[in-house]
Design a binder for these strands. Structure first.
Lengths: 213, 213
DNA sequence: ACGCTTACTGACTGACCGGTCATTAACGAC
DNA sequence: GTCGTTAATGACCGGTCAGTCAGTAAGCGT
């Protein structure tokens, strides 16, 4: 073993981000309750005491994880959609759905989604934060796209502008289903996504789709 | 206080059901990990030891709760659907969806659904059991109805027979959404259900729906 | 080189809880 | 009444873990 790396290094700036990343790994692997601060410390290659040096409690650490991992993705999508006034509404909705499949269902971020759903009821601050910063903005954006589409005659009026979460329900279900029941019933994600898009477009488009397949 | 009720009563027959009901209350309130067997015992007005007299472990107790509360409902629906060969497939699917809204989303059973989703990843025995006894049967029934409908020409062919969970995704989302975000964004369940049914029928029906709304 | 500040450590504490078992008493048989 | 069976009890054990704090040494200024 080389002796040029002392066991203790003083790196005040780098620690918080390293600890948050280590915590993310532990939380998505085991959930909130089953994650021990010592595991996080080990993963971050610091001692337990150091974790408590930068984060008051286990809950504060959890909130930091959600903040750091969810906000960047959602914000970039929302900006792209709101700025684009020319792409037809159906294509924009398809883009949103496909982005969610790629960025959430197709990655370990689905475990973070599961974590928010699982721990939400016992942490009101978490759902409040998540709705304010993530879900509320996302739903508002979908509503905006639907309204634009109706105004242009690209979409037919129906209840989906009042219930935008229903359009993305299959995405969340795909994430949860694959996490929970992968061993029992594997999902063909390609086929699932195509089915979702086709169903959504048929429900939304102003002109009835071509005849039966 | 009247002295005619001794502290200890021997009621071997009544205990299991009472303990399961007490456990249901505790589990839906606090989740699996955070529920203490002593809480369950207190709720059932017995001692901790008595709980272990009737249930081997905490997990066995949890499984009993799910069994007792979910199986009767799912089985009655499935029997009704499979036996009925005359009702049109779209009406049968609507019946399934409305029953789920009434029996799950509209009751505290939605907390049980949340519990399975929340604790599933850390308890493989739970998801295995739930898929075998509940979800698998339900999805198979929906697939059966879709196939019947296609054979009769009531439904147009599409990917939904291969992805039946997508049809019921809005039900699960309604249950989770109301549990998590009720304070932030109340859902008008009547309108939500109507939108879901309308969207599903439009996606499934062989003939395009009547003109735009 | 030397000392001072402070990032960092990890053994420890106190509380919690799943599961056990020796003891107790309710109830029925006679 | 009293005796045997067994449902019911609750103190206890062993293990876990969030959070603490007295002590240690890395790095900087001089």
């Amino acid at each position: 073993m080389n002796g040029n790396s002392p066991k203790r290094r003083r790196r005040k700036d780098a620690r918080p981000a390293e600890i948050v990343e280590a915590a993310r790994k532990c939380f998505v692997l085991n959930g909130f309750a089953a994650t021990r601060i010592e595991d996080v410390a080990k993963q971050a290659e610091v001692s337990k005491g150091t974790v408590y040096l930068y984060f008051e409690t286990k809950e504060a650490l959890f909130e930091a994880v959600v903040r750091a991992n969810v906000l960047p993705v959602i914000d970039s999508v929302i900006q792209a959609i709101r700025a684009d006034e020319t792409t037809p509404a159906p294509r924009q909705l398809e883009f949103i759905a496909r982005t969610m499949y790629r960025e959430i269902v197709g990655t370990e971020r689905r475990r973070l989604l599961h974590l928010v759903i699982a721990e939400g009821p016992r942490f009101p601050w978490l759902t409040e934060f998540y709705y304010r910063e993530v879900l509320g903005k996302g739903l508002e954006t979908i509503r905006l796209v639907i309204e634009r589409g109706e105004a242009r005659g690209e979409l037919r009026g129906n209840g989906l502008d009042r219930n935008p979460q229903m359009l993305m329900a299959p995405v969340v279900i795909a994430a949860l289903f694959s996490l929970l029941f992968e061993p029992q019933a594997a999902v063909d994600l390609e086929d699932y996504i195509d089915t979702h898009i086709a169903m959504g477009l048929r429900a939304l488009e102003a002109a009835p789709a071509r005849g039966a397949v």
